[in-house]
């Protein structure tokens, strides 16, 4: 079978395992909720992660330009960047995809490796992992920026008033 076909045939199974693996990084009660609740507004974390992964996987297998995967990656990492996770936990889910794909390919792994398809895919996954880290850092920096911006907003009129007081002697 054409390796590409096999992978796309396996796609639902891969997605399922990948999704479950990521959700298992949460405490048991939480992971049960994240898997079970299907309403996207009642369970925005589970929904966003699932939708994002679906898109990432599809794009990876279809060979879509990595930049176009960035928004889905961003949606997931933006959430994980503010949860009780270390940086490697927050972005590590991308790398776990490699193991899952090899597992799903099983005995076909060698064939795919030989065709160059698997190494190519894994290289793209590695590139996504690096992108993930950039996104994670941007999110964390954003947290600091929000703090600074908020302080400015909260005292806007008082600052304006203080500036006026300072400017008076110059006029």
């Amino acid at each position: 079978m054409d390796p590409r076909n096999l992978l796309s045939e396996k796609r639902p199974a891969i997605l399922n395992r990948w999704f479950n693996a990521v959700l298992d990084t949460y405490p048991a009660d939480t992971s049960a909720f994240l898997k079970k609740q299907k309403n996207q507004f009642a369970n925005p974390v589970g929904h966003t992660i699932h939708q994002g992964m679906e898109h990432i996987l599809e794009a990876l297998l279809q060979g879509t330009d990595l930049d176009r995967i960035a928004p889905s990656l961003d949606n997931i990492i933006r959430i994980r960047a503010v949860q009780d996770l270390t940086p490697s936990q927050a972005v590590g889910f991308i790398l776990s995809l490699k193991k899952i794909i090899r597992e799903e390919l099983g005995s076909n792994t060698r064939e795919h490796s030989a065709s160059g398809e698997l190494p190519g895919l894994e290289e793209r996954i590695d590139a996504l992992a690096l992108m993930s880290f950039d996104i994670y850092i941007q999110c964390r920096e954003k947290i600091y920026e929000l703090r600074a911006n908020e302080t400015k907003r909260l005292t806007y009129r008082l600052l304006q008033r203080a500036n006026l007081v300072c400017e008076l002697p110059d006029q």
């Binding site: 990948w18 693996a21 990084t25 936990q89």
Partner: peptide
């Protein structure tokens, strides 16, 4: 290929899952 023998869920658990207390 022994290093891929563990189920991915298990691998994920080994590395990331929170303690079950």
């Amino acid at each position: 290929m022994a290093k891929f023998s563990a189920k991915p869920d298990e691998l994920a658990k080994i590395r990331y899952a929170p303690p079950e207390t």
